[in-house]
Nucleic acid binder design. Sequence first.
DNA 1: GCTTGACGTTGACGCAGCGGCAAGTTCTAC
DNA 2: GTAGAACTTGCCGCTGCGTCAACGTCAAGC
Lengths: 251, 251
Amino acid sequence: MDHSIQDVARLAGTTSRTLRHYGAEGLLPPSRIGTNGYRYYDDRALVRLQRILLLRDLGLGLPAIRLVLDREVDETAALREHLGWLEQEQQRLDRQIRSVQTTITTLEGEDQLMADQMFDGFDHTQYKEEVVERWGADAYRNSDEWWRSMTTAQRKEWRAATRALQADWADAVTRRVDPAGAEGQQLARRHVRWLGAVPGLPRENGHLAADYVRGLGEMYVADDRFGADYGGPAGAAFVRDALAHYADEHL
Amino acid sequence: MDHSIQDVARLAGTTSRTLRHYGAEGLLPPSRIGTNGYRYYDDRALVRLQRILLLRDLGLGLPAIRLVLDREVDETAALREHLGWLEQEQQRLDRQIRSVQTTITTLEGEDQLMADQMFDGFDHTQYKEEVVERWGADAYRNSDEWWRSMTTAQRKEWRAATRALQADWADAVTRRVDPAGAEGQQLARRHVRWLGAVPGLPRENGHLAADYVRGLGEMYVADDRFGADYGGPAGAAFVRDALAHYADEHL
DNA sequence: GCTTGACGTTGACGCAGCGGCAAGTTCTAC
DNA sequence: GTAGAACTTGCCGCTGCGTCAACGTCAAGC
């Protein structure tokens, strides 16, 4: 009635190493240990092992499995919670896949124009006058020089990132997520990080100036060309709100 | 021109720990190190950091990022390969989610009948005579006793697993995957593992008898009721082929 | 000149779930 | 009796940092 560790492993489609691990974790102690130190498992242990492996296949972690097996939590509840986590992971993966696809297609696109295309849909060099007026002349010059100093490949990647960011903003807008919520703030963080790569932009305490970020959001709303990329003025307003909230909280 | 590690971290939206990590990995060495040991980063390093964080957001690993940055592999190619991996992960997650959902709904279903429902769609106790004839009387008895000895919750879970396995077989059949391929064999492995939980079934060398597994596959094909669950005789044949191949390779 | 507090350094553990290896013991078959 | 298969404990490795711990440095105020 007792099976050796290898027997059990083959029988259950796992490895002896895994069984020892479960034993060490207290998840599946051997039902008997010989005087020689060998582990032996009876049929009850086999059944328990099956349940463990079943739940493992569903992606549950060992601590969660222990709670279920020891009846400390309801199995249905545990699975439901786990399902939530899985769906969250799925969404994260979906977003990453979309971003990678956008980046690839943009990288494959032929070379575009030059510095005046730098920010594509976000092109704030079109606001040269405003930038110069509000943030000083050398800020504008520095950004421009920085852009011209990039290699073609670097510029390509920059544009790819810009497109991807833009696409993700647009996506968030259409899904009507909360600008101040987790996803909106994640996007705002990406936006600020993306802009932060540009030397010469106004900074304070080492990061982008909060006022500059807020002002940028207002500019997006003020000019129709920005909003056009995210489904009208509501899109630009969304971006503005997310950026403003981010500036309040983190800058 | 030079920024301290904290400045860079805030500016790029990351942490100083991460920067030290990248330094230790040789991915982003500080552009200068002071006599006091402090790390300083110039604008070039900042640009490199942005690229690193960009690719990290896409899910690339640090080694892959290094290859891209050092121009040892083409960025587009790297992203394309990464996309493949992401999509694979996505499929794995999808399957897991479906399995969890199936398990939950089955767990929620009210109690069903008893031992004669043990294998649901796979019910091989309906083949009592065949089982007894080919594998001995006590094999049949043992399985039945085992089933009756289970608690209601255990039986519920067993049925849930059965349903999930069945659903996954059906899914694989409709997608016309290769019975001898990775996914087909993975299912076969689950099937054997699932059956392996039943004590009293014929075994050899500790695992289910290969002939028994092959015979089971043939029974699925021989009886219309099995095939009905996977889209006709082709479904049962698919299961049989996958099991036979698995038996050949692993039993 | 001294304290204080912010910021910097290196070093090391932790995580999730085992895989894999090493060194030593025991069982099994010839 | 001996080879070889199977078993044991113990420990490193993986991924990408988070998080102390213990200890130097620097700028500002008294």
